[in-house]
C-alpha cells in the first residue's frame, strides 16, 4: 500500500475544500470498498479525508412526507429502521440482500452508492482495464464476462454497478444531496450514475471533491408501499447479483395503475426499465402482459459472447425475475 496521510476535519465544507485542493485525496467513510482497493493497488491516494464524524447518521422526516437518510447512516441501520421497512420495503430488502452482517454494519449510505464495480479485471491491476486507466483496453470483452452488462455498455467497458441499494433507490425516484466546492445541490438518483460511454473511469456525475451528504426518499405512493427487491445470485447469500430487480406495483381492479421497475446486474448503472413500465401502465396485470413488457425492454440487450463464459443467460433470467416479482406484488405466487 502506498503511504498516505490521514485527516479528520470537523466540518463537511472543510472536507470538501481539502479534496478539491488535492486531486490525489479521497474521502473515507465505511471503508469496506476503499480498504480493499488500497490493498489491491486499484487506487493509490496520498491523503484520506475521514468523513465518518461529519456526515449525518440520522434518518429524519421531510415536510413532504418523505425521509432524509444521512449519508453516514450504516446500511444495517437503514434496513432496520421501522419507517423504511414499512413505507419503503424495496429499500430494506435491497440492503439486506447485499454483503454480510459485518459489512452492513460498516458500510455507509453514501458509500454504498459510490462503490466500484466487482469486475474481476478492474480489481486486478495486472490486467488491462479502461475503468482504471482510459489508455488501456477492456479485458472483460472476450474474457470472463459472466457478471457483465447486457444493456447500455460501450466498446470501452462492460462492467456492471454492484449496489443493491442503488437499484431500489432508482425505482423509487430518490434524490441525492451533494455538497461540492460551489455549494449544495440535488441530483435525481436516475441521473447520478453514468453509462460508460467514452469514459468508464467515471461511475457517477460527481466531480472530485463532491460529498454525498444525504439521500431523500419521496413520500411513499401506494405502489412504493407495495414494493420489493429480488436478487438472483450464484449462492443463497453473501454474493453479488447476477441480476436483480426492484419493483413497485399498484393494481386496481386487475389493471396496472402504477409500476416502477429498476434492474441490477445488467448495466453500468442501475437500469430503470422505462420501456417496460410504459408498456404495462393501464394494461391487465397478467403474466402475458408482464412478459411482453420486459421483452420490449430487453429488445435493446446486447449480450457478450465469450469462450470463458458469456452473459446471454441474463436475458431469460431477467425476464423470469421481473415476471415472477410482478406476479407476487399483484397477489399471485412469486
Amino acid at each position: 500500500m502506498r503511504p498516505f496521510t490521514y485527516a479528520r476535519p470537523d466540518a463537511a465544507a472543510d472536507a470538501v475544500a481539502t479534496l478539491a485542493a488535492d486531486p490525489d485525496a479521497r474521502f473515507l467513510a465505511g471503508g469496506t470498498n476503499l480498504l480493499d482497493h488500497l490493498k489491491l493497488g486499484v487506487v493509490e491516494p496520498t491523503q484520506l479525508v475521514d468523513v465518518t464524524g461529519i456526515t449525518s447518521t440520522e434518518i429524519t422526516e421531510l415536510d413532504d412526507g418523505g425521509l432524509r437518510i444521512g449519508a453516514g447512516v450504516p446500511n444495517s441501520d437503514l434496513a432496520a429502521d421501522p419507517r423504511v421497512r414499512e413505507r419503503y420495503p424495496a429499500v430494506a430488502a435491497a440492503i439486506l440482500a447485499g454483503a454480510s452482517g459485518q459489512l452492513r454494519n460498516m458500510a455507509s449510505t453514501g458509500g454504498n452508492l459510490l462503490q466500484r464495480t466487482r469486475c474481476a479485471y478492474f480489481a486486478d491491476p495486472t490486467t488491462p482495464c479502461t475503468k482504471r486507466d482510459l489508455s488501456q483496453g477492456c479485458s472483460a470483452r472476450g474474457g470472463w464476462a459472466r457478471y457483465h452488462a447486457i444493456l447500455g455498455a460501450s466498446e470501452h467497458c462492460i462492467a456492471t454497478h454492484p449496489s443493491d441499494l442503488a437499484v431500489a433507490l432508482v425505482a423509487l425516484d430518490a434524490q441525492v444531496q451533494v455538497l461540492g466546492a460551489d455549494g449544495a445541490r440535488t441530483i435525481p438518483i436516475a441521473a447520478f450514475h453514468r453509462l460508460p460511454g467514452d469514459d468508464p473511469t467515471r461511475d457517477t456525475v460527481l466531480a472530485h471533491g463532491d460529498l454525498v451528504t444525504a439521500v431523500d426518499l419521496p413520500a411513499p405512493t401506494p405502489a412504493v408501499a407495495n414494493s420489493t427487491y429480488r436478487k438472483v445470485r450464484d449462492r443463497a447469500s453473501y454474493a453479488f447479483a447476477l441480476v436483480s430487480a426492484a419493483v413497485a406495483l399498484e393494481v386496481r381492479e386487475g389493471t396496472v395503475v402504477d409500476v416502477r421497475i429498476a434492474l441490477g446486474g445488467v448495466a453500468h448503472k442501475p437500469w430503470r426499465a422505462t420501456t417496460a413500465e410504459a408498456a404495462l401502465r393501464g394494461r391487465p396485470a397478467t403474466d402475458d402482459e408482464f412478459r411482453a413488457a420486459i421483452a420490449a425492454e430487453l429488445e435493446a440487450a446486447e449480450p457478450v459472447e465469450s469462450p470463458l463464459g458469456g452473459n446471454a443467460y441474463k436475458i431469460p433470467l431477467v425476464t423470469g425475475t421481473v415476471v415472477s416479482t410482478l406476479r407476487g406484488l399483484a397477489g399471485g405466487v412469486a
Binding site: 473515507l28 469496506t32 480498504l35 475521514d50 465518518t52 459489512l103 454494519n105 460498516m106
Partner: peptide, 11 residues
C-alpha cells in the same frame, strides 16, 4: 460486529 481487516486503526 465489524471486519477488522477493512478498518483503519487510525480512524
Amino acid at each position: 460486529r465489524v471486519l477488522s481487516c477493512l478498518t483503519l486503526a487510525v480512524a
